[in-house]
Design a protein around this nucleic acid. Sequence first.
DNA 1: GCGCTTAGCCGCTCA
DNA 2: TGAGCGGTTAAGCGC
Lengths: 255, 255
Amino acid sequence: MNGIMFYPLLEEAGDFINSSVRGKKLIICIGLFSVEYLGRSSSNLGLGERVLMVKEDGSVLVHRRVGYEPVNWQPAGCIIRCGVRDGKLLLLSERRRPKEFLKVVFDKVYLITSTSLVDEARFEIGPVENEFYDLLMAHPEYIEEGLRIVSRQKSMPSGIPDFTGKDSKGNYVIIEVKRSMAGVDSVKQLDRYMKSQRGHFRGILCAPSITKSALLILKKKGYDFRRLNLKALSSLVAFKPYEETLDRHLEEGGS
Amino acid sequence: MNGIMFYPLLEEAGDFINSSVRGKKLIICIGLFSVEYLGRSSSNLGLGERVLMVKEDGSVLVHRRVGYEPVNWQPAGCIIRCGVRDGKLLLLSERRRPKEFLKVVFDKVYLITSTSLVDEARFEIGPVENEFYDLLMAHPEYIEEGLRIVSRQKSMPSGIPDFTGKDSKGNYVIIEVKRSMAGVDSVKQLDRYMKSQRGHFRGILCAPSITKSALLILKKKGYDFRRLNLKALSSLVAFKPYEETLDRHLEEGGS
DNA sequence: GCGCTTAGCCGCTCA
DNA sequence: TGAGCGGTTAAGCGC
């Protein structure tokens, strides 16, 4: 049921949670509780005041006073069981694969609320991976003049390189693209692809920047680095009107 | 201020948020709003009912009906500004480095609450102290194949190493175990034990990881480092108690 | 501050 | 179902 309770008895809170879970509601609960986790790892969090969130898909979040990340959690798809035992309110969340358990033991519930959220909006995310590769696919000159893309995301025994192509001199090339600074593992990734090839190939690592150590290894292995101009690339996509809105509001400020 | 409001006017909600931010409270708000993000990437989420959480460290989370992950967020350290503009309640979160903005635009606020959570508990990850040593005692192969534990020092008073044992070649070994990354002083500790011994002993430092400088000294002194797989160790913890609790609960309890 | 490594990473895609 | 891989990864640590 949609609703809210303040300082409920633990039995009341338990009933509330169970009917909310059955009713596919989002539950938010502020209380005094401890948390145990057992699964791929294990953890123990003693008594303290925190926020518990349980969603209709079975995901569970335990948030402490600070920090972006939940201290304990369970991803979507878990089975929630709840009830009073030995004078404490117990909430158990079981994940099937991998087998994992989260146990929340309430001493006190200060506030508990459940709601049905109506939210049909589509989440639009800006120049994402795919869009980004579309651009490079359409404009290989941003990687190297005269380059022609032959394949994209082609599966190889050693993984999946972003592109294969042919350069202006007719050499076959393998291209690994990073949207942010390339590190040592980017080079390793490229190297894996290269090693699994027979015949002459050029290797190109393409990113806005590269760490010193990565560049060192790259050079030693005889591969090339191509600096990617993200700004120039973005200018190829349509301007996002909401950036304007945000800027305007930031200028005018709030308080 | 600690408190809660139902269906407040946007102005009231704005004031509430501002004083809560100043008072270092955790804010939870359920409402009808849209979200824009601009920074390393950009995103747009149209109008819908969601949960907003703002923590005292400036972290911001926007949660939709489903999913473990927040649809939008801002990590700790952001500056929160809030106020009414053009009949909407705006909440802006600004991150300095990298420069990122999150804008929440409320059409309606259904519920808003702020609390000061008292939570001093320490978060223990991995097997708890005793369990941890029990596990290693029972599974010395996690330290080294063929190792046999001879003695164990449970409590911490120094002067006595965590374990002594005999390796597969019949060498006596002194083992210093750390539950977290080993540092220079871990090596020093092992070294003290070693120096207090007469006769031939091998020294093993056993930890999930080790700092470079510590490894350097360790090698120079001729001791060995053994990487501890905490994850694998955790999985050795008996699942029985949990499953029992869960089963018992399912049979007798809640719903 | 930057660069590197890890994470109960999560979640997506595709063989 | 598993492997590979991106992410507004975040967060921690060494340098």
